[in-house]
Design a protein around this nucleic acid. Structure first.
Lengths: 205, 205, 205, 205
DNA sequence: AATGAATGAGAGTTCATTCAT
DNA sequence: TATGAATGAACTCTCATTCAT
């Protein structure tokens, strides 16, 4: 028997359950998806889901946690790194958008359906989300300090705007597996830094 | 059955029904809201709703149409106007964000819940949405032609990014009635045009 | 329209629902009976029960209240009356046993199933039950005062014993519609007063 | 499968299972208790219960048999003994009431939950119960013959009444561990023999 | 002798919908 | 124009039971 209190088999199956729930919630929404849908997607019977989840709501909670957890972790390591501002910004966008590709829609579920969670769990997730936003704000503040970003910038606004735009792209990414991720990342970063305006003189630093 | 499609009283009540549905759908989502909720919000009994809607789904359809219709109309008149690019851009952002404030959350419902509509209706709405995006793309193309926007811009990308960001702010606006709309509009427009980077030389046109 | 907020039809149907629930709970117990059983006994469909009850538990609550209410009321009027002790005792037994005959098993449900009620409702019923027992105790105390009952009697014990014995007969009455109620009442009263012992001298007062 | 019906270890565990089931059934009722509850109370896993019981219903059957068996046995030995009537009566009450204290609530389960047993098993138990009642009736008949009990007594009624009253006290005993058993026994016996009436002349035998 | 995993039937409950009035 | 009453299908969830290990 393995070291885990619940053995490997159980944990593996539980992960599969969470990913199935993520897929189904992302496609149909929390109320639009039935536990039968989730179970079928996973290849077990409806009642058996309750061996892995205490309730449908619990399933949503697990998906949301799964969705946001290493999303925030990645931001933490980006923020802690030694890169210059521009690299951090691009790393942020890259991390955000590729989360949608890699993590089977769990981040999308977190964004769209977390409001159906009970107050308590939502508070936990909110802290994680706030931590993300604050770290991004701090990155912008560093950008100002280093002179790369203009002093007048409202860093709180900037963080919200970047997150909002990335989430918008996230919806598209989840629905369109063809979209060129790298290209989108490049263009987003460029827009955030330079905007769309034509410049007479090239004044790149 | 309605005696007369142009019957005033009936049409007035029907509008009230649509707005009630919009409010309730925005708050609880399509599946989270019951027809009883909608009826109560409107001050009638559950069964009486069916005098105004063929079905709950029909109600959602009406709300979505109501939500996107003059949102697109406004874009059409912006696009058709004679203003320079920058004004059109700001008008777009203004129109988009203030829609969330003014329109009983119907646009939010369109964005979040339209996936529950049957294929056919969704296709109709999608056309409206595409029309919006295409007109915005065209505005960017005009910006390029007029030399305000740099030639290299991917106008399709630009339109998506702007829409995505505005929708992100829309969520925040709906939840936070305190937020200064005008300030947000200014900052969004500025970001889209100029980005966040510090410039050595002022090269405003 | 009648004066009642809910009109007559509704109240009548609700009473039928309560009586149906009483019958089914008495036969199968609270958990052994399904809401489908109750609905079928009443001649409606399962889902329609919820037009009359908020939940199965609510149905149990109503049955219990219905079962004990005028049972206690009758005791109150017996206790308040001017009869001598012996009449009051017989009236008590009569009232108790005939409750089982008349009230469609609701009193039996109260006795056997009330423990499945939530604390709050059970407390309300408990007060009613205690009031019954206390009034019976008081009747015995009066019996002592009037010299009919021996001074040494533990009136609390006496009340409990009488209630317990009557409930025992209640079970039998509910199951056996043939049983001669009047005969049983006579014998119970006689036993309580005189016991079973043979007396050398007739010493009736 | 059990290797040997007389296997000691197996039989011991089986007894533990029956006692656990008795406790849990007494507390929550047959339908209110789950096989998981019983297993947990016994310290094994749910599935393992089926090593000792064929089904949940079978468990109830065993508990009921266990509950009534030596209850009847004791009556048999009381009835067969040489004591005078009054001693037999007190022995009966003592046996009945102390059963509730000593026997893990199995007698209570028999009384309250046996209705959930299939007809066949219930018939078996009913015979045991009838045997108890008949022996008690016979004791009363002996009382009449010996002149202690009045000739007019309906011995069938008397037996039922005594059993009913004792069961009533049983409920109280199970719920209130503080209750003075000996005192209750004394008072019950006294009531059955002498009733509550005041006597002018002492005519004790 | 015992268990982890799964199942399937059935429970209580909700709710969109219908329709006579 | 509106409603009270009823329905039936779907839902979440529980649980007795089975069985390979």
């Amino acid at each position: 028997m393995p070291a885990n209190p619940h053995n490997n088999r159980y944990e593996q199956q539980r992960q599969r359950a969470i990913r199935s729930a993520a897929t189904v919630f992302a496609e149909k929404g929390f109320y639009g998806a039935s536990t039968k849908d989730i179970a079928e997607h996973m290849g077990i019977k409806q009642g058996s889901l309750y061996y892995y989840f205490k309730s449908k709501e619990d399933a949503l909670g697990e998906v949301c946690r799964y969705g946001i957890e290493d999303y925030v972790d990645r931001m933490t390591s980006i923020a802690a790194s030694d890169q210059p501002f521009e690299s951090k910004l691009m790393a942020t966008v890259t991390s955000h958008l590729s989360s949608y590709r890699e993590k089977n829609e769990a981040l999308k579920v977190h964004n769209d359906e977390r409001l159906y969670l009970p107050e308590e769990k939502r508070a936990t997730l909110k802290e994680l989300g706030s931590s993300y936003r604050q770290q991004l704000e701090r990155i912008f503040e560093e950008g100002v300090e280093s002179g790369v970003v203009r002093k007048s910038l409202d860093c709180h606004f900037a963080a919200q705007a970047v997150i909002g735009m990335c989430n918008g792209w996230g919806d598209i990414i989840v629905r369109d597996p063809q979209l060129d991720l790298f290209d989108t990342i490049q263009k987003c970063t460029d827009m955030i830094l330079n905007g769309f305006r034509e410049r007479r003189t090239t004044e790149r630093q």
